[in-house]
C-alpha cells in the first residue's frame, strides 16, 4: 500500500524568491520549481514542462500561471494543468508557508528513493 508520511522540509524564505519569479529546489529525485506570484502566493511544481521537459522555473510568471520558456505552454500553478489548447499536467508538490518560511512535503521523494 502506498502510505506516505509527510516530510516537511524547510527550503527557504518567501523573500528569497522574487515576485513574479521562481527558484529551484534540487533534490535527488529531480528539480522542484517554487513560484511566487505578484500577490505573494507560493506554489511548487516539478520543474518539467509536460510538453518537452522545459524548466518551468525559468518561465515568465503571470497571474497564477507560468509560461514555459521552451515552447510557450502555459501551466496553471495551482493545479499543474496545461491551459487549452495544450493538454498535459505537471505534478504539484505540497507546500506550506509558516511565518515567512516555505516548507515542501518531500514524502514522495522519500518513497521514491526507498
Amino acid at each position: 500500500m502506498d502510505m506516505m508520511v509527510s516530510r516537511w522540509i524547510d527550503v527557504g524564505a518567501l523573500e528569497d524568491i522574487p515576485r513574479r519569479g521562481a527558484r529551484v529546489v534540487k533534490t535527488p529525485a529531480g528539480c522542484i520549481a517554487v513560484f511566487r506570484t505578484e500577490a505573494d502566493e507560493v506554489f511548487a511544481l516539478d520543474d518539467r514542462c509536460p510538453h518537452k521537459g522545459g524548466p518551468l522555473s525559468q518561465g515568465i510568471v503571470h497571474g497564477r500561471s507560468v509560461t514555459c520558456p521552451l515552447h510557450n505552454w502555459v501551466i496553471d500553478l495551482a493545479t499543474g494543468q496545461a491551459k487549452a489548447p495544450d493538454e498535459g499536467r505537471v505534478a504539484t508538490v505540497p507546500l506550506r508557508s509558516e511565518g515567512g518560511r516555505l516548507l515542501l512535503d518531500l514524502a514522495r521523494m522519500a518513497s521514491r528513493a526507498a
Binding site: R7, I9, D10, V11, G12, D16, I17, R23, V24, V25, K26, T27, P28, C31, V34, L104, L106, A107, M109, A110, A113
Partner: peptide
C-alpha cells in the same frame, strides 16, 4: 543559485 538543495538524508 538553487533555493535549496535537499539530500536523501534530509527526507529519510
Amino acid at each position: 543559485k538553487p533555493l535549496a538543495q535537499v539530500s536523501l538524508e534530509d527526507v529519510a
